[in-house]
Structure formats: structure tokens, C-alpha cells
């Protein structure tokens, strides 16, 4: 049993909330709501809002999940809820 499951869950929710705010801001904010004002600026040959909508937001999604996966690994270790080594990727079966 984990030492502090409540603390683990709260830390998880905090991380999630931050990442979801960024997720919303980059996609709906920069790609949709602010697209016209941003289109006044250019990024190379891209109007900036258009770039966020069709390229930048997708890169941001990848980065957000990467941060989540890394941070959750740390959280698992800190709260002692990380799975057994034999449960890690690569093992054939982890469930009884």
C-alpha cells in the first residue's frame, strides 16, 4: 500500500490541471480564439495564428504528453507507488 495515496493523487491533479490549461490555451486560445490578431504576425512564411492552428498546437500536444509521462514517473517514485521492475514495458505478462 502506498504511504500517502492522497498526497499522490493531489500532486497528480495539480500537474494535470496545469497541463490542461496549457492544452486549452495553445489549441483553442492561440489556434482559434486569437487566430486573427495573431495572423498579423509572420513566422517565416506562416501567418502566426494559422501556424498555431495547423502546426504549433500539434507539436505542443506532443510536448504536453511528454512532460506528463516524465513527471508522473517521478511522482510514482517519490510516493513509492511505482510498479515493480518486472511490471515495466517489455515484460510479457504483468497481471496474475
Amino acid at each position: 500500500m502506498a504511504a500517502d495515496p492522497k498526497g499522490y493523487w493531489r500532486a497528480n491533479l495539480r500537474l494535470m490541471a496545469v497541463l490542461l490549461v496549457v492544452w486549452f490555451f495553445v489549441s483553442y486560445g492561440l489556434g482559434i480564439l486569437l487566430v486573427e490578431p495573431l495572423n498579423q504576425f509572420m513566422l517565416g512564411g506562416f501567418p502566426l495564428g494559422f501556424w498555431f492552428a495547423q502546426q504549433g498546437s500539434i507539436y505542443a500536444f506532443v510536448v504536453l504528453i511528454a512532460i506528463y509521462a516524465f513527471a508522473m514517473d517521478r511522482l510514482d517514485r517519490r510516493y513509492g507507488v511505482a510498479e515493480n521492475p518486472q511490471d515495466g514495458p517489455g515484460s510479457p505478462r504483468s497481471e496474475p
Partner: peptide, 12 residues
């Protein structure tokens, strides 16, 4: 996938 952790990484 084998674990919850693997589920996070495989989503990435």
C-alpha cells in the same frame, strides 16, 4: 500494454 506507466508512455 503491461502497466499504467506503459499506458502513459504509449500515449506519447
Amino acid at each position: 500494454v503491461p502497466s499504467a506507466r506503459a499506458a502513459r508512455w504509449s500515449a506519447l
